[in-house]
């Protein structure tokens, strides 16, 4: 038993001494690109896609997956702990500037660039979008006759009877409770903190512990559980194109080209398929990322 413990201890020590240990903090060292992700599976999948695309070009990559919410990861890429983060342009903008209401993709990009930290830059956006959404469960849709033609504004008279759920950060975000109040004038009965479109959110909607929740539009469970995604006519959740956020000068040109090539091929349909493989078919995101890159001629 002592021998086993000693071996394990050594294994732990030696692997954590290696530069590519994803578990230690600190700064990214010069010759390795650190790709981070937020604490939801789609973000980890995208990080794996970026990382493997960079590796295919001979760039050294380390992963720091499942870090936490954007409130945390934006600080980490700003201080140099991370080099690359998969981002969603509209959500990033809302984090930087609560009041921005861009009408087009270009306006979104310009508004972000105006507020982005001077050491950071965005590469090309992918056509793929994955939005936060106001989604009701089947029971609620039936009770209040809500269909996929209904909009968030239709909740106006009934919001006071409904419990809304979302990630803890949803409570304090413009693209969250704050915006639902200021843009749509909705005040819900209460807010239940769940997770970022993960198993808690799914369970709470199915059990009717919440009637409304923030679910990503690329979530395979929406069709499976007959959830209804409400339209967003006032564009609160804006554009949500998948887009790499990187530190300036930290990526060689071939890395920039590799990520732009990924973005060019990544559309919403593809992202939904890949999400389904990870979340519904329980495949490892790294395997899914590699397989897709190969099939797209990028791996």
């Amino acid at each position: 038993m002592v021998a086993l413990a000693a071996t394990a201890l050594l294994a732990g020590c030696s692997s954590s001494d290696k530069a590519d240990n994803p578990l230690t903090g600190g700064k990214a060292d010069g010759d390795s690109v650190v790709v981070g992700s937020n604490n939801f599976p789609e973000s980890t999948l995208l990080a794996d896609i970026y990382g493997e695309a960079l590796k295919a070009k001979g760039i050294k990559v380390t992963y720091k997956p499942n870090i936490g919410s954007r409130e945390t990861t934006y600080g980490l890429i700003k201080n140099g702990s991370l080099t690359v983060m998969p981002e969603f342009n509209g959500a990033l903008l809302a984090h930087l500037d609560k009041k921005a209401t861009p009408k087009t993709l270009e306006e979104t990009q310009d508004a972000i660039n105006a507020k982005l930290d001077s050491q950071l830059t965005l590469l090309d956006p992918a056509p793929a979008q994955s939005k936060d959404s106001v989604t009701v469960n089947a029971a609620t849709a039936g009770k209040y006759h809500l269909t996929d033609k209904s909009s968030i504004a239709d909740l106006k008279d009934i919001a006071g009877d409904l419990v809304i759920g979302g990630s803890p950060e949803f409570q304090a975000r413009q693209q969250g409770l704050e915006g639902l109040k200021s843009v749509y004038g909705l005040e819900f009965k209460s807010f239940k903190a769940l997770d970022t479109g993960g198993p808690l959110t799914l369970a709470a909607l199915k059990k009717n512990a919440v009637q409304v929740a923030d679910v990503f539009t690329t979530d395979p469970n929406i069709t499976k559980e007959k959830f209804v995604v409400l339209r967003d006519p006032k564009n609160l959740f804006g554009f949500q194109n998948v887009q790499p956020l990187v530190r300036k000068g930290a990526l060689p040109q071939k890395g920039v080209d590799a990520l732009n090539a990924v973005s060019a091929k990544l559309d919403t349909k593809t992202l939904l398929e890949l999400d389904t493989q990870v979340q519904a078919e329980k495949k490892d995101p790294l395997d899914v990322a590699r397989a897709w890159l190969k099939s797209a001629g990028l791996g």
């Binding site: 919410s69 409130e71 945390t72 600080g75 803890p168 950060e169 304090a172 997770d195 709470a204 512990a209």
Partner: peptide
């Protein structure tokens, strides 16, 4: 308890973590 969406004082700690508050 707050980690599995219940209430209690842990709510402030978990929410504060994710909201960076």
């Amino acid at each position: 308890a707050a980690y599995v969406s219940l209430g209690g004082l842990g709510r402030y700690i978990i929410d504060g973590l994710y909201q960076k508050d």
